[in-house]
Amino acid sequence: MTSLDQQKETLNQAGLEMLHLCSKQLDNAREAFFTHDSDLAEEVVHTENRVNALDLKIDRDCERFIALHNPVASDLRFVLALRKINFDLERVGDHAYGISKYIIELNTPIDEELLIKMRVHEMFDSALSMLEDITGAYDEVDTKKARKVFKKDKILNEINMDSFRIISEEVKKQPELINQFLITFSIIKKLERIGDLVTNIAEEIIFYREAEVLKHRKKKKINRSKE
């Protein structure tokens, strides 16, 4: 193994660690939200420091890799992709942190009926499933697996689109629960953003493996072109 290969593998493992860490953060935020476990939410808030430290480490190591190894072709695409993936994951971590902050501030759990109506469980499950898919896609450099997340992101977008209407109707019926509605709405927005960030990661894996830039292209066309 060359020195470049060793460095690349170290970076690759750091990227994988970031994926596992941010997935775990969201998983814990989900658990804390549905069980109203503020201790677990606190843990997510504290662990955000680890996410930030790993983000800085990956950024610094990518910079060194470029400066010391002058990568080209797939090596260059790898390090460029990893920098963006790292940036996106750090944002995923931020959203898990944001959700956990709400949980800590909430005095009473959010009404279960509302959560079902707003499809919040489904949203958390989809976002976590996307993160699981993308972790596998990254680990195996499997672009087919990476493309799976584009479809799942649609579910998040759809729930997000409906949420505004549902909240508007519900708030009229129970104006005293305005605080709960707003928090739920914010969490839905964060989960929708996580979906977008995971699709960005998928695009980066495809860029690394196939040298194809999918950014700003219609996802429908992307899926069709590979069928």
Binding site: T2, P71, V72, A73, S74, L76, R77, A211
Partner: peptide, 17 residues
């Protein structure tokens, strides 16, 4: 050629492998 070479041999050479 330096970002996305067509041939594996080229890629191996320019990346030092």
């Amino acid at each position: 050629l330096f970002t996305n070479p067509e041939k594996k041999q080229t890629e191996n050479y320019i990346t030092g492998r």
